[in-house]
């Protein structure tokens, strides 16, 4: 048995989600090859070769891969799948963009965002915003799976897999990259941060979000998140959104500030180890899942907390 894992990377470095996806593939079993498709991505390929449990790294260079265009990745992966029993990708926006195309081309029903591998055809995945956990069994000959990174622990130790080059499929593709606006920040990446500080609608403006949430996050060395309401209102950028339809996080410490705790928000953070909620309404649903509840005005509490830490 063999599994092809799609690496998530920015050409220079591997994203954490890759190692966790490899861990999920290990739970599935068989030989694990990691595909690093990128542009000037040798550094990412070399990093993948050091992951524990990897048989070999397949490194493919091509301009269309500099931004992981779904059409190009599909053209690359589909022919490769004759040699594999399963395709695993992290359930990042890249994985979610690409994996269904590959599944459709292989005539396979994808299993999205698994949180557990039960056996080689059975998986657990959350549905209904995490209000139910479904165990599904796939009758397809090949499995196409996306992996919720927070549910798996990267294997310890280092590997020394070989790196092979493979040819890129010929373009042109019907989609082309135009531009990107990536958030530049020295803060830990939200999805993998050990601590997360999130702000909600109560922050009431982008200025106050920055003024109250960011210093606390910096004091804690935390990543920054937000509720959908805060993102929709423009207080925080879209990639800060935590929840059912945003990012799923499971840090050691999650501090929810001025967030009511709608089920869609809880879906993205309720697996955090310790949850602190700061809210002026003692009936706020977020308190039903918080380990430590502090009732009061965030505009008083947060500066005090920041200064005393």
């Amino acid at each position: 048995m063999a599994v092809l894992v799609l690496a998530e990377h920015n050409n220079a470095a591997l994203n954490d989600a890759t190692a966790k996806t490899v861990a999920a593939a290990q739970a599935f079993g068989g030989d694990i090859d990691v595909l690093v498709a990128g542009h000037n991505a040798k550094a990412a390929a070399d990093a993948a070769a050091k992951l524990a449990g990897v048989r070999k790294v397949i490194h493919v260079e091509g301009e269309a891969f500099s931004h992981a265009l779904a059409e190009a990745v599909e053209a690359l992966v589909v022919p490769m799948m004759s040699g594999y029993d399963a395709f695993f990708a992290p359930a990042t926006t890249t994985g979610k963009n690409v994996a269904p195309r590959i599944a459709a081309k292989l005539d396979v029903m994808q299993i999205s965002e698994i949180t557990k591998v039960v056996d080689t055809s059975t998986f657990e995945r959350p549905i209904y915003a995490g209000n139910a956990i479904m165990t599904v069994k796939s009758a397809d000959a090949k499995k196409v799976v996306t992996v919720r990174a927070t549910a798996f622990q990267a294997a310890a130790g280092a590997g020394s897999a070989s790196v092979e080059s493979a040819a890129a499929p010929a373009g042109p593709f019907k989609a082309t990259f135009v531009s990107e606006e990536l958030q530049k920040s020295d803060r830990p990446e939200l999805a993998s941060a050990k601590r997360v500080v999130s702000g909600g609608r109560a922050l009431a403006s982008a200025e106050q979000f920055d003024q109250y949430i960011l210093p606390l996050a910096d004091k804690l060395g935390a990543g920054v998140g937000a509720s959908r309401a805060a993102v929709d209102a423009g207080y925080a950028p879209n990639d800060f959104q935590v929840g059912q339809t945003g990012k799923v996080v499971a840090p050691e410490l999650y501090i929810a500030i001025g967030i009511s705790g709608a089920i869609q928000h809880l879906a993205g953070m309720k697996d955090s180890k310790i949850i602190v909620a700061i809210n002026k309404d003692e009936e706020a649903p977020i308190f039903q899942i918080a380990d430590y509840a502090l009732v009061g005005d965030l505009f008083k509490i947060v500066p005090e907390l920041t200064s005393k830490l």
């Binding site: 956990i133 479904m134 165990t135 599904v136 796939s138 039903q288 899942i289 509840a293």
Partner: peptide
């Protein structure tokens, strides 16, 4: 192509405790 083996409630998370102030937190 998929059969649902079962659908279960997720692990319940219990409400914790109220803390009086920032120092207590």
């Amino acid at each position: 192509r998929l059969t649902v083996v079962k659908v279960a409630e997720p692990k319940k998370r219990e409400a914790g405790e109220k803390v009086a102030d920032v120092d207590a937190l």
